[in-house]
Design a protein around this nucleic acid. Structure first.
Lengths: 126, 126
DNA sequence: CTAATTTCGCAACTCAGTTGCATTAGTACA
DNA sequence: TGTACTAATGCAACTGAGTTGCGAAATTAG
């Protein structure tokens, strides 16, 4: 259970996240490795890598699924409560390493947060 | 331009939001009015109502589109920076009327925020 | 009542994501 | 190093949310 075999496909995907430390949408990943592997494989590898804590996922502004490398996560503890910033011009996403204070809600158990800031990134701000 | 005619379909949708003041996913809305109107119509009415500031939209935890009635929004000013809470058991969404402080980001222009807290609601917490 | 225009229904489409199944390729162990 | 077990892959077909084009129906202004 949960055993990850080091196949070529897994290595390819992992390298993408290692080399450029930025978030990627599944769609763009599929495009990136088109020719090397099937889109089904990409989805399944991302699933496995997320379960094992190598990457984390979140929804972009258009409802598409994005993934990024985890810093300090494992299969057991997922500290992906950090916010993301998505540029509405170029669509790029950055992981933000800042704390967002969420007020405690009465009668609600909050397990995780999905915080996306939308605006213009450095390159796109004129 | 942007004139909204008061058709039966529009009234039906508006009533749903007026009567129970809770967020609805597009999927559930389509299910609700099935028989009365076409799903294309539902999508288009929601678009128009959002543009005119009667409702606002956001993405739920599964990437589906949700809508809720606006309090204090108009076609010109959209103050939908409030966070939402979605229960992972029953999928219900609540609009939260609290302020979330987002630290200012250098070199980033933040236009809007998409904040979703995920957990267990009152009814689902054992 | 009529004309101009918006809105609706329908069918066909797009596209992200999933599923089932037969085949391939890691891995453990002799 | 070979073999057997099982995970991983490719493919094709599917699902389901959301969109588009167009002719028909309904709303509104005059």
């Amino acid at each position: 259970m949960g055993v990850i075999r080091k196949t070529k496909a897994v290595t390819t995907v992992l390298n993408i996240f290692e080399n450029k430390n930025e978030a990627k949408s599944v769609v763009s990943l599929i495009e990136l490795v088109k020719g090397d592997m099937n889109k089904t494989t990409v989805y399944r590898i991302l699933d496995r890598l997320e379960q094992d804590g190598f990457i984390h996922s979140f929804n972009g502004k258009d409802g598409l699924k994005w993934y990024a490398k985890c810093n300090g996560c494992s299969a057991h503890k997922h500290s992906d409560k950090h916010p993301h910033f998505q540029c509405k011009e170029c669509d790029k996403v950055e992981c933000l390493s800042l704390e967002v204070n969420i007020p405690i809600l009465k009668n609600h158990k909050v397990d995780s947060t999905d915080i996306l800031l939308i605006g213009q990134c450095e390159s796109c701000s004129v």
